[in-house]
Amino acid sequence: MLEHGGNLRAARQRYGRDDWLDLSTGINPWGYQVPALAADAWHRLPEPNPALVRAACAYYGAPLLLPVAGTQAAIQALPRLRPPARVTVAAPSYAEHAHHWGKHGHSLREVPYAALGTAIATSDVVVVCNPNNPTGAAIAPAQLLAWADELGRRGGWLVVDEAFGDTLPGPGVAAYSAQPGLVVLRSVGKFFGLAGLRLGFVGAHPALLGDLAELLGPWAVSGPAQDIALAALEDHAWQHAMRARLQAAGQRLRLQLAAYRIDAGGTDLFHWWPEPRPEAFHDHLAQHGIWCRLFTQAARGIRLGLPADEEAWQRLVRALDEWSEK
């Protein structure tokens, strides 16, 4: 399996401490408060809840969505729904996309995020994270829709992973996901801080959603996950307040890093920069009990999520102070 953030067991084993400040994932540190569940939530088989789909369609602005056990389930399944194809994945990006397209007989290439436009004409499938993980770079919806239209006319797909899209202005491209050629992935885990729920949604042409549902099989999403997500998706007051809170925290992190001459980019949930000595920086923070995300392949750099409270902020500042003195 590929390495990801949130792997605190590995951190404990390597550094021998338990007091970790985990900034490695980019998940909202102030997650949605889980409501009380019905008495039979754990007893009943998890039949699909139409109310959840309606709430998700309203929240994401999509005509039709398929709930899945986290977008990871869709990332693993989509390559199995096409015959061998020419697949282009933006790099750097969430590594699971290239990993799974490369496992199922497809011809895979990875191109820089800025070069995606030139790859459309020679690709059957193009995969892009928008905003990108880990860099935070974003492509305008109009450009994505133009690419999807070009690919769709010859039976291709543009797969747009909008897992971190909740804090971007505007609704993204989910509203257009019923058109052939566009597949959109949305996650409940990041903005709502419910990564352990393992729930996401796929927007696509109804025929493709049918094929995906058939492949994933029955009871793909647990009943408690559906109930909790329904409450979160319908809580508009919480969403509005949280967007403002995350915007302020993201700006604070950006300015804090800039004070140490770190030119970071990202989203309201995380920041990334091309660190000249990423391994040394990662080890330095780990020595202070701060777990960040280390990138050593296509994007040599560091990604930091948001500290949850003032004590955590000051802990990060102290570690950055010492790093700047080295």
Rank of each mutant, 00 (worst) to 15 (best):
G105S: 08
G16N: 14
A41Q: 08
W101N: 07
P84M: 05
A146E: 15
W30Y: 11
A142Y: 03
E150M: 07
A174C: 10
V111L: 15
R261H: 15
L81Y: 06
A142I: 03
P171D: 13
A258Y: 01
V173E: 07
A280V: 04
V159Y: 12
S24M: 02
S24G: 07
D149I: 03
Q13R: 15
N49M: 04
P206D: 08
N49S: 11
D309L: 02
H4M: 11
A249N: 04
W272D: 10
A115C: 14
S187Q: 11
L255Y: 04
D263N: 13
A119W: 03
A241L: 11
H284V: 06
A258S: 05
E310S: 12
W273P: 10
G181T: 07
D321P: 00
G250I: 01
G61E: 09
L246P: 07
E47I: 00
G5M: 00
G203V: 00
D235S: 04
A140K: 10
N133D: 14
A248T: 06
L233D: 05
A248G: 08
P92G: 11
G102C: 09
D19E: 10
Q13E: 15
V53Q: 06
D283S: 15
M242L: 08
A38D: 12
G189N: 11
F191L: 12
Y60A: 11
A121W: 00
G102M: 06
L81P: 10
P79F: 10
G266P: 06
Y176R: 07
Y94G: 10
Q143N: 11
A264Q: 09
V34Q: 14
A140I: 01
P224L: 00
L64Q: 13
L269V: 04
P35M: 13
P50I: 01
A58Y: 01
G165L: 05
